[in-house]
Each structure stands twice: as structure tokens, then as C-alpha cells.
Simulated scan of single mutants.
Amino acid sequence: MRIYGLKTCDTCRKAAKALDGAEVIDIRHMPMAPELRARAFETFGAALLNTRSTTWRGLSEAERARPPLELLEAHPALMKRPLIDDDTALHLGWGKDVQAALLG
């Protein structure tokens, strides 16, 4: 199981602690493969972008208008976190639904 996010993100830390043995991948230091980014966007659509983040608020209108996959490649911190790959499905965030799916 892999958790894609930021090592400094509290939500990613909570997920990593609960999912003992999961590999945490900091997307600022090790960018996601384009195939995984495309699969995640296909699965979650616009929900993959965190439009409430400080990174988003710092973007110009022209940058915000760029295609989402280009934005995520240029600004990895724009991704809603964590993105969890359990080898069968992708999960986004650490809400009750994701916790129930992964922890039983």
C-alpha cells in the first residue's frame, strides 16, 4: 500500500499511522508517475484538486485555467491528500468512508 502526500501533512501522517506498513511517498520530493496521476484524475475528477489550499489561492487566474493534470504536475501540493493506492483501488482523503474501506 502506498500513501501519496506530503510528509508535513497532518492528515497524511494520521493515515500512515493507521495503515501500519504503508509506504509514504512525499510528492514534492518524488513526483507521481504521469500514469498514476491520470488514473487518479480519471477516478476522482476535479475533486483531486484542493482548491482551498494556499497553493491554489496563490495561483493567477491564468494558471488556474490550465488543465488539472498540468497543474498537478507543476504544483504537486495542489493534490487533495492523501491519495492511497491499495493495489486494487485508489482512495482520496482520510474521511470515515476511506477509513472504513481500508481498516474494515
Score class of each variant (00 low, 15 high):
17 K>D: 13
62 A>R: 13
62 A>H: 11
74 A>L: 15
64 R>F: 01
80 K>L: 07
94 W>A: 07
54 T>F: 07
29 H>R: 15
52 R>P: 04
16 A>R: 10
50 N>D: 06
96 K>T: 11
3 I>P: 08
36 L>R: 13
11 T>G: 00
29 H>D: 15
25 I>V: 09
15 A>R: 02
69 L>Y: 05
20 D>T: 15
80 K>D: 08
101 A>N: 05
55 T>K: 11
3 I>V: 10
7 K>R: 15
55 T>I: 05
67 P>K: 14
74 A>H: 06
51 T>N: 10
65 A>T: 00
34 P>D: 09
87 D>M: 13
88 T>N: 14
95 G>H: 04
91 H>Y: 09
1 M>N: 09
51 T>V: 10
11 T>F: 01
24 V>F: 11
19 L>I: 06
70 E>Y: 06
25 I>R: 12
15 A>K: 08
63 E>Q: 14
74 A>I: 12
15 A>F: 03
86 D>L: 03
20 D>E: 15
2 R>V: 08
70 E>P: 03
58 G>S: 07
94 W>E: 04
93 G>Q: 05
58 G>E: 05
78 L>S: 02
43 T>W: 06
6 L>E: 10
7 K>G: 15
104 G>E: 03
20 D>W: 11
67 P>C: 01
18 A>Q: 08
15 A>W: 02
82 P>M: 07
64 R>A: 09
53 S>T: 05
2 R>E: 14
40 A>I: 02
104 G>S: 05
58 G>Y: 00
99 Q>F: 02
55 T>V: 09
10 D>A: 09
76 P>S: 11
84 I>K: 07
27 I>P: 05
86 D>I: 00
36 L>V: 15
90 L>H: 05
102 L>G: 07
99 Q>R: 14
68 P>I: 12
